[in-house]
Simulated scan of single mutants.
Amino acid sequence: MSPHSTLPTISPQPRLSDFFQGMGLLGRAFSLILRDRRLFLLSALCAAVTAAALVGLAWLLWRYAPGALESVWTRPESWYGQAAWTAVLVLSGLVLWVVGANVLPPLLLAPLQDPLSELTEEACGGGPGASFTVAGFVRGLVTGIAHTLARLFFLLAGLAVLLPLHLIPGVGSVLWTVLASLYTMTWMAGEYLAAPMTRHLYPFAEVRRMLRERRALCLGLGAGIYVLLWVPILNAFFLPVAIVAGTLLYGGLREARLLAPPPGESTTAALK
């Protein structure tokens, strides 16, 4: 497989099959990581940190989630009340675990995300990254922080809007879990597509435009990452795989001319 063929060939027009192409990006990412020694070593380091974070997160939820739920809803005494209470605890815990998995490991591994994305672009024939400059580093850091805050705001705001669904007797918690999962999948697609776009100084509006215009493609990527989080052992690699897959999606969008040249290109040229 040539470096160029690693990038997905994206249709200029949206298609329903884009969803499966988005999920397939994870397979491309795994293949690239296994073939590139530098990507593999960096991914292995990320996996070790991620595994520890996921185990710690699961322990925290197991230890404190029941008490948190009891603080807002006393455990019923009837068998059917206890069944409903347990269902709410399990469903909410599953979504909270996914949300936590997409917040804690990325924060711990923030310094390694850009190198992973840069190595992916190099492996796809993009050439080495731009030379280091203080001004470029500061601009990238500010842009990255702004993107991260914006993405976290949208994630938490969306889940908060859906919280009242729990008040609907019977189906409310199930409905909240389904909608919150779909929303989180979309958010994850934006999170990892934004990783390379942030490095190239695209405004956050461009990330939202891609999520809107190529909805099925991005949802497929998010769904693949979501499913990967539930696969034991492999889920330790979810962060590097997600970053590599998001970078491949970015490269495919560039190849299909669905994204304009990055603002970072003209900025870098002006600094040299």
Results as ranks from 00 to 15, higher is better:
Gly264Ile: 08
Gly140Ile: 09
Val227Arg: 11
Val72Ile: 14
Met23Asn: 03
Val171Gly: 11
Leu94Cys: 09
Arg209Trp: 01
Phe30Ser: 01
Pro106Asp: 02
Glu213Gly: 12
Pro169Glu: 11
Trp85Glu: 05
Pro128Arg: 12
Pro128Tyr: 10
Thr268Leu: 15
Gly129Asn: 00
His200Ala: 07
Leu45Pro: 06
Val207Glu: 00
Pro8Met: 01
Pro261Tyr: 04
Phe238Ser: 03
Ile233Arg: 00
Leu249Trp: 03
Leu26Asp: 06
Met188Arg: 00
Ala123Lys: 06
Ile10Thr: 05
Gly67Phe: 06
Glu191Lys: 07
Ala65Thr: 06
Val49Ser: 01
Leu162Trp: 11
Gly144Thr: 02
Ala65Val: 11
Ala223Val: 01
Val72Tyr: 03
Tyr64Met: 11
Pro261Glu: 11
Met1Asp: 11
Leu179Cys: 02
Thr120Ala: 04
Phe154Met: 11
Ile233Ala: 14
Val142Leu: 14
Thr6Met: 14
Leu193Met: 08
Gly158Trp: 06
Gly22Arg: 04
Leu104His: 02
Tyr202Asn: 04
Leu34Met: 15
Glu213Asn: 07
Gly22His: 08
Thr177Gly: 00
Ala47Cys: 06
Leu167Ile: 11
Val171Ile: 15
Trp79Ala: 15
Glu121Ser: 01
Ser71Val: 06
Val138Asn: 08
Leu60Phe: 14
Leu167Ser: 11
Ala47Asn: 03
Gly246His: 03
Ala135Lys: 12
Ser71Asp: 13
Ser173Glu: 04
Ser173Tyr: 10
Ala123Trp: 04
Ala146Val: 14
Met185Arg: 10
Arg15Gln: 13
Met210Thr: 00
Arg208Leu: 14
Glu122Gly: 02
Phe204His: 10
Met210Val: 12
Thr120Ile: 01
Pro164Ala: 00
Ile168Ala: 08
Gly100Lys: 00
Ala146Lys: 13
Leu217Thr: 07
Leu89Tyr: 02
Tyr64Phe: 14
Trp176Cys: 07
Val142Arg: 13
Ala270Pro: 11
Val241Leu: 02
Arg215Lys: 13
